[in-house]
Amino acid sequence: MADPDDPLHHAVRAWRDRRIRKICRRARGARFERTADLPHVEARSGLAVVRAFAPHPRDDVPDLLRPLQVGGLDLTDPDDLDQPGPEGVLTIRLTPGVGMTTGKAAAQVGHAAQLAYENLPAAPAWAATGFGIRVITGAPVLPVAERVDVADGGFTEVAPGTVTASAGFETVS
């Protein structure tokens, strides 16, 4: 988000200059379509669409987003946890044993993806492939220099400094 002409640049910069907080929300159908009018960036995978909206203070949530929540989802890990992801896909590993609601886990995944984009040298190649990710539960397998870790601020569900997620480009050796 370094381009000052990007419409979200100033909102992201103001957000980064404070203590970072992330909130994930879920919408379907008409509620989701109405959110397209808000400043955002969008990612797609098959039929799935994710929108990241301009950061805003927690007490100043846009009216279209205020009623949306993430919940009621039962997410399960794939059977191939021990296998590397496809070439160019970012693997995000949620830390085992750290209890998080679905919304909290989604926020940590988003933060891990953002940190990977900003800090890992393979990010330009990742962008060229459409920002594919796979999310699993598991301890990091990459050395510290080849991954990013999300250390939580401790505002909600976990203790400050808890590493909730790690992300990196795991490849077949």
Rank of each mutant, 00 (worst) to 15 (best):
A2Q: 11
P4Q: 03
D6G: 01
P7D: 01
P7N: 06
A14P: 06
W15N: 02
W15F: 12
R16C: 02
R18D: 15
I20M: 12
I20D: 05
C24R: 08
R26D: 11
F32N: 06
R34T: 13
L38G: 01
H40K: 04
H40V: 05
V41L: 11
E42K: 12
A43H: 12
R44G: 02
A48N: 15
A48E: 15
R51S: 05
F53G: 06
P55D: 08
P55T: 10
P57V: 05
R58C: 09
R58H: 15
D59S: 09
D60I: 04
V61S: 05
D63Y: 00
L64G: 09
L65R: 07
R66T: 08
G71D: 06
D74I: 13
P78W: 00
D79M: 02
D82H: 14
Q83H: 08
Q83P: 00
P84H: 08
G85M: 03
G88P: 00
I92N: 06
I92W: 03
I92F: 03
R93G: 01
R93P: 01
P96Q: 04
V98D: 11
V98C: 12
M100E: 09
T102M: 11
G103S: 14
Q108A: 12
A112V: 07
A113Y: 01
Q114H: 15
L115Y: 05
A116E: 02
E118G: 05
N119K: 12
P121L: 08
P121H: 12
P124Q: 01
P124M: 03
P124R: 02
A125T: 05
A127H: 13
A128L: 04
T129E: 13
I133H: 07
V135I: 15
I136T: 14
P143T: 10
A145P: 04
V148W: 04
D149Y: 03
A151G: 07
E157T: 07
E157P: 10
V158Y: 05
A159F: 00
P160R: 11
T162V: 12
T162M: 09
S166L: 07
A167V: 11
F169K: 11
